[in-house]
Design a protein around this nucleic acid. Structure first.
Lengths: 243, 243
DNA sequence: CGCAGAATTGATACATCTCAAGCTGGGTGG
DNA sequence: CCACCCAGCTTGAGATGTATCAATTCTGCG
């Protein structure tokens, strides 16, 4: 459950996380407050409605936020990637089911002390506002996908978004040939895209047949021509991340 | 374009808007900064991508945020109701098309001075974070609706949400018989729910035929049994606003 | 009155879902 | 070391919900 503790100064997500604008004295204080938690792929972090006595940044791996209806229909409403934050100031209970989609490591803080720290550290609150506004834009982008895109466009959009993010992480340009490991099962993709897993599988097969993507094994996606795939998302040519 | 100026102290949205926690001296300062703008139903406030040199709170009426694809498919990604805020600190350009769905009055601030005011007024930033987190929850709730609900459930959910909000505004309980004016055309409902206007019309007719709703004129909706309609949303019985 | 925008209704098409049958690859135990 | 197993995935055939195209019918208003 617990992994080796790192100093905040050496943290891999330091420059993008909530604490991005913290100065050394603040980092030292965070060092004393934080603890790590690890989850295996498939494990549940919290259930919607459960009391949640901590807040956390994702250090590595991916977690999903999802809602499930009484009859089992499920919608993933957000992915938490490295540097993303989990937990809402002032709220005691989780709003969504949080599940480790891959092996996951999170940097955690007990809620009360962390809220106190935030209250006396204005730039933390301002960083949090910035990150929340970005999440809101991403959620709204996803609303367009869920409400108006075809299955084919949904799959293409997913690959373009993951490919672009992956390229950014590797500090590469998102054009020409791009390859990445797809960290989601077909079922998770379906729940994220508002489709069934059969439809996801079929549309991936179609894109493969047309040469827009290649599969290496089940999980590695190669995009030989990123621009060509972008043209299949339905967004205007800039890829439409914001619009 | 400009309406009579009110003192902030008498503002009808004062207790729910961004400035909810401002004290009299701050309100006086806001009084000197603010100006009102009015739009007629159907007018565009800004286009996505346009430079936006102001931020604003909705005083009365409804505005919609929407995204449109090249081929004309449109998705409404948010409604701005009285007390909701438009504009993002640090961003010069509008991210979405903003349209007045009904006649609309907004309380506006030029961006630069307002950002400066926010920078030295921490509780404004904190109120903004709170409002943004609420919007994010609402957006994610809508993702479940768009991705997983049937047309019938979508219509029922829309009426329940508007009915509940309307009851809250009138300080009534949301049960038994509820009635409200529906401020959206069939087309706007379709764009909000990810449907066509024909499907919206048909499903409204079905709910009417089943006695779950009545129409008085085209725009006034009467819900004789709020609980019964809630049972049609697919959410668990608390209505699932948060989950 | 008669128009124009909004809404309803009908007939048909089609994308996606549903149910069902195999396939594939990696791990395990005999 | 091989056969088996199982979760994850693919593919097929048919059902179904929603979109599309096309008339009407309302409703408010000049």
């Amino acid at each position: 459950m617990t992994t080796a503790i790192k100093r905040c100064g050496e943290c891999p997500i330091r420059h993008r996380a909530l604490c991005a604008r913290c100065e050394p004295p603040e980092l030292e204080e965070l060092d004393t407050m934080k603890y790590y938690r690890s989850y295996e792929a498939g494990q549940t972090v919290v259930w919607a409605g459960d009391r949640m006595d901590f807040m956390a940044s994702v250090v590595s791996g991916i977690a999903s936020l999802s809602q499930t209806m009484e009859d089992g229909r499920t919608q993933i409403v957000g992915l938490l990637l490295p540097s993303d934050f989990l937990g809402r100031p002032g709220r005691e209970c989780a709003t969504y089911d949080v599940t480790a989609t891959t092996d996951l490591v999170m940097c955690c803080f007990r809620r009360k002390p962390f809220e106190a720290f935030m209250a006396r550290t204005p730039h933390l609150a301002s960083r949090m506002l910035e990150m929340t506004l970005d999440e809101l834009d991403a959620a709204r982008e996803w609303m367009l996908l869920l409400g108006r895109k075809t299955a084919r466009e949904k799959i293409a959009s997913l690959f373009v978004i993951i490919g672009r993010r992956d390229a950014a992480l590797k500090l590469k340009e998102a054009d020409g040939e791009i390859a990445f490991d797809l960290p989601l099962t077909r079922e998770a993709m379906a729940d994220y895209l508002g489709l069934t897993l059969e439809t996801v599988s079929r549309q991936i097969s179609v894109l493969k047949r047309e040469g827009l993507i290649r599969l290496e094994g089940k999980r590695r996606i190669v995009i030989p021509d990123f621009q060509a795939l972008m043209a299949e998302t339905g967004d205007d040519c800039d890829g439409g991340l914001i619009g």
